[in-house]
Design a protein around this nucleic acid. Structure first.
Lengths: 213, 213
DNA sequence: GAACATATGGCACGAACTGCCACATGGCAA
DNA sequence: TTGCCATGTGGCAGTTCGTGCCATATGTTC
């Protein structure tokens, strides 16, 4: 199940094309900025037609945010490996640390990731798209908690509201850290991680205090 | 200073044109949805050229989100009226309640506001723009706390990180509430307010625990 | 190699914006 | 009132993103 049945020629070709588009695009974004880089240029660089570009990516944003999506997926799978009875915020905190550790056994791939963060952060046209990803990710995090919760466990079933709240408060904390890091003069990924942990550690969510609705 | 010197004919005309564009646009959004409503149609309805539309609003999103901006401003001014020594989350909670109360002495204008929320919430193309506004608002909230903080007060000066964290955690909670309300079958603004308070009350931010950076 | 499925390219088109220039309108002073 | 100046407005051409349609090329299967 973990071993892949040597993907077909077609699939290999598609994978290579896709990666080529991503690489070319990010190189151009880095050099010329996101806004001034046209899809036409990306397509030309990746040696595909513009029409084909849009078959691989629904829009220009998507190719720019591909690395972000990867990190999101990584965090999500890390979250799924946490014990089911762990409180949401604790699990999320641990998951993001796991994801970063997995990504940077050498510390290099995390830097490769953060390298994409600055160009993205500077492209105001991308900001909205980034936020959309974050919201979508938050929903998936939240879903993990309500689904994973044992219906006949010792605790009363966690409400959707609690789950969402934990997920989005968590993401807000990470965002604050990323933005602070981007604003600072540091380019060291370790500083980013440290800032993120500080933010996460000052977050607390009370479990539905006796509150009349 | 509070009384306006009877704005000039020019200014009155601009104001009317602007409001006309907003009204026409939202009527069309309500009827046909955001995506399928073209700027051309809005401009035609408001009896201005397309070129002029773009002189009033930088893009289609901006006219759609004008009511949201208004609410943001309202909350911000309410926040400025809070005592300076109030903890950020407490002040924000009170400010948003104030803003809602101001907006709905009769309960009608708040409904008028929430009426805009659904069309916006359903327009996926707007989601990113909404998030952008929220981030911008969060920054202004945060700024309020660091600036308003007395440098030689009894407490060690609040860091920017703390201020941002409070602002964005607050906005995350409100967002969760709004989304939950949109997803529910309720159209009663009171339900929205109640949900928002529940979310806000389970949020706690610890003040920078002894944490080695 | 034939038959089929799918990936690709090219073209026309719609919609969001923008720059530019000509014209109209409001404000102001002689 | 007249005329000058600032500013608001319209129209048009052009760029870019994104989509539907159809013909063609390439991989897959028998």
């Amino acid at each position: 199940m973990s071993e892949q049945q040597t993907e077909s020629l077609r699939e290999r070709k598609k994978r290579r094309t896709r990666q080529s588009i991503i690489d070319v695009a990010h190189a151009l974004f880095h050099d010329n900025g996101y806004d001034t880089t046209t899809v036409e240029a990306i397509a030309a660089g990746a040696d595909v037609s513009v029409r084909t570009f849009f078959r691989y990516f629904a829009n220009k944003e998507e190719v720019a945010l591909a690395p972000l999506d990867e990190m999101g997926e990584l965090t999500l799978t890390a979250l799924r490996r946490r014990p089911a009875d762990e409180p949401p915020l604790t699990a999320l905190r641990a998951a993001v640390i796991d994801a970063w550790t997995i990504m940077s056994p050498d510390g290099e791939s995390l830097r490769h990731y953060t390298d994409h963060l600055l160009p993205i952060g500077n492209a105001s046209a991308l900001a909205g798209a980034v936020q959309n990803r974050i919201v979508a990710l938050g929903d998936r995090f939240a879903l993990e908690f309500v689904e994973g919760d044992d219906p006949d466990g010792p605790q009363p079933r966690r409400t959707d509201l609690d789950a969402s709240l934990a997920a989005f408060a968590f993401l807000a904390a990470v965002q604050v850290a990323v933005r602070a890091w981007c604003a600072s003069d540091s380019t060291d990924p370790a500083d980013l991680a440290a800032t993120a942990l500080i933010c996460l550690d000052s977050l607390v969510i009370e479990r539905n205090p006796a509150h009349r609705a």
